[in-house]
Amino acid sequence: MALTVGIDVGTGAVKTALFEINGDKITWIDRQTDRIRNRQPFTLAENAFDYLLEKNGYTRDDIDYIATTGDAESIPYSTGHFYSMTTHARGALYLNPDARSLLDIGALNGKAISMSDKGKVLKYKMTSQCASGSGQFLENIARYLGIGQDEIGGLSEQADDPEVVSGICAVLAETDVINMVSRNISAANILKGIHISMAGRLVKLLKSLKVTEGVVMCTGGLALDSGLVLALNEAMARSKMDMPVVSHEDSIYAGAIGAAIWGAFRHEKLTELENMAKAS
């Protein structure tokens, strides 16, 4: 049995997950999400970590493996760090055992990843440097339009005549949006246009991985944007890719979940090696 914590420091939020893992039995004990909002991510991570332990009656000494992922490499109390693709793949598999690929859509970029049925990353592609395909860009546009982030998905789904924005450059895309506002295009159609643009880029990445089976899981900060998930499914259909794109209410935790599960795996392996060394 291993008690593990996964800490995922992203660009927009810090996600922390506490797990108890005994062989194949995986129990997710508790979780915590903190939006960064100009605060120090490592302080948020440590506070969340201590909060979860105290809330569940544990101390730091009870934790067998503190696994970090994302931008958390330098957290000093971490037992080990896993790269975000590794943890998102494992997290996606935990949330949906049929997942064989995933779209990790975060604040700064998006990644398409194909994986094995054990969660091993097989191939990946990443969006280019430009922010036009990122969550941060979408957040900025929503702010300009005076729309709350939780309203984006619902509004986008109501669009009746979307106008597509530039998928290449965030500056051009912002100019497109300003023009649309001056032409009285509705917020719903603007947001849908952005979703279509983002979905087109992400599906293109997925297609280049030649994934043909299983479910495409959405993870990362934008996974809960229902408008984007809808646009992704539409883009998949246009690209003649016969796989459903699905999300999960806990998709935002995929990195932290994957880190905690891999942490338990490593804990077991290291204990085995230690015992072998003692025996010899």
Partner: peptide, 15 residues
């Protein structure tokens, strides 16, 4: 570099 070295470290540890 971090991406390559990080995924390499993961692949050693896990696979």
């Amino acid at each position: 570099i971090r991406e390559q070295a990080g995924t390499f470290a993961d692949s050693i540890k896990l696979w």
